[in-house]
């Protein structure tokens, strides 16, 4: 209990978002999976992409409190961006990542004035409407996007000119793991910064924020931009490692899925969201190979139940367990 008392002089208080001991465990598990499951690296890579995508959306929903039903747009744009660039002959993977981030950031910048203002409901609608618009556009621009067939006819050059993408997916996995680690670190930094505190302030009480002089719209626009850019990175990674970019990557189902992943993982908790995304990816893969219909049914039921039961998600459990451990 005494650990909770404020330090008598200006000692640092407990960070609001702890760099919890769970973080090393996450990375240990990811590294271990490389050695333990060499035949499932493609799945592991997809899960890493899902984790990146979830972290990007958590910045919006978990930290700034913006609910979007169209976040997959940025994943899809990142995927198409890097795939199209590769088809034009610019096959360097890092260049592709940069392209994915840029195009998604650019679109987020254009959209942010509409998304930032308005109530929760208008925001849901605008994100849903814009997502439908972009989906339709991608569907129509067959020459560029391959329409309903998607894009598969592109190459990806060796990473840094050194590491070719091998058939077993080793390079792809390690590449995705590195990008995930960088995203994780970046988001940890952003969310514990003054800017991150301001975002949590908006989530907690958007009415008080202007009364303390906060440029709320600008904060939200910046977080939307950042979040879009990171999702774009995830999308580029997805296209490069699966050699595929398709319409479903920016579809409504992906958008709805990421809302669930982040909520079940525990919004606003980076470690919890990462674990939630990994668990979601694993369970989805296991169940949907058995029966996609039962998977969808189970998902629906879990979602409905989660609203009444598991408030705080996995992140909430980590917090509670951590508090319990400290007290013991």
């Amino acid at each position: 209990m005494s650990a909770l008392n404020p330090a008598s002089h200006g000692g640092l208080s407990k960070p609001a978002l702890p760099f919890s001991p769970v973080t090393p465990l996450i990375f240990a598990a990811l590294i271990a999976s490389y050695f333990l499951f060499p035949n499932h690296l493609a799945l592991a890579t997809q899960i890493l992409v899902l984790m990146i995508f979830a972290l990007s959306y958590d910045l919006l929903q978990g930290h700034a409190g913006i609910v979007s039903l169209g976040h997959a747009v940025f994943l899809g744009l990142g995927a198409y961006g890097s795939a199209i660039l590769a088809r034009w002959g610019f096959t360097d993977p890092l260049l592709g990542l940069a392209a994915g981030a840029s195009i998604s950031a650019l679109v987020a910048l254009v959209l942010s004035p509409i998304v930032v203002r308005g109530s929760d409901f208008t925001r849901l609608l605008v994100t849903l409407g814009v997502a439908s618009l972009i989906h339709e556009a991608a569907n129509r621009m067959r020459d560029l996007t391959g329409g309903a067939d998607g894009l598969a006819d592109f190459e990806v050059a060796p990473l840094l000119g050194l590491f070719a993408f091998d058939f077993e997916g080793r390079t792809a996995f390690l590449y995705a793991l590195t990008v995930f680690a960088l995203v994780y670190a970046a988001l940890w930094r952003v969310t514990t910064s003054p800017f991150g505190l301001a975002l949590r302030g908006i989530r907690e009480n958007s009415r008080r924020m202007p009364a303390i002089g906060s440029p709320v719209a600008r904060h939200l626009a910046v977080s939307y931009l950042l979040s879009g850019a990171i999702a774009g990175v995830g999308g580029a990674l997805l296209a490069q490692t699966s050699r595929f970019a398709s319409l479903d990557m920016l579809g409504f189902e992906r958008s709805a899925e990421i809302v669930m992943v982040v909520t079940l993982g525990g919004t606003g908790h980076i470690a919890g969201v990462s674990i939630g995304a990994a668990a979601f990816g694993l369970v989805k893969d296991a169940l949907s190979t058995v029966s996609p219909r039962y998977w969808q049914l189970g998902l629906g039921v879990v979602l409905m139940a989660s609203v009444f039961l598991a408030r705080g998600g996995i992140g909430g459990l980590i917090e509670r367990f951590g508090r319990f451990g400290r007290r013991a």
Binding site: L12, S13, P15, A16, R189, V190, T192, S193, P194, F195, G196, L197, A198, G201, M209, I212, G213, S214, H219, V222
Partner: peptide, 20 residues
Amino acid sequence: VLLAVLERNRRTAVFWRSVR
């Protein structure tokens, strides 16, 4: 209170340093 202080001296654009 810290949030209000940071907003007043316009430090909330800072995202690369810890708030602590």
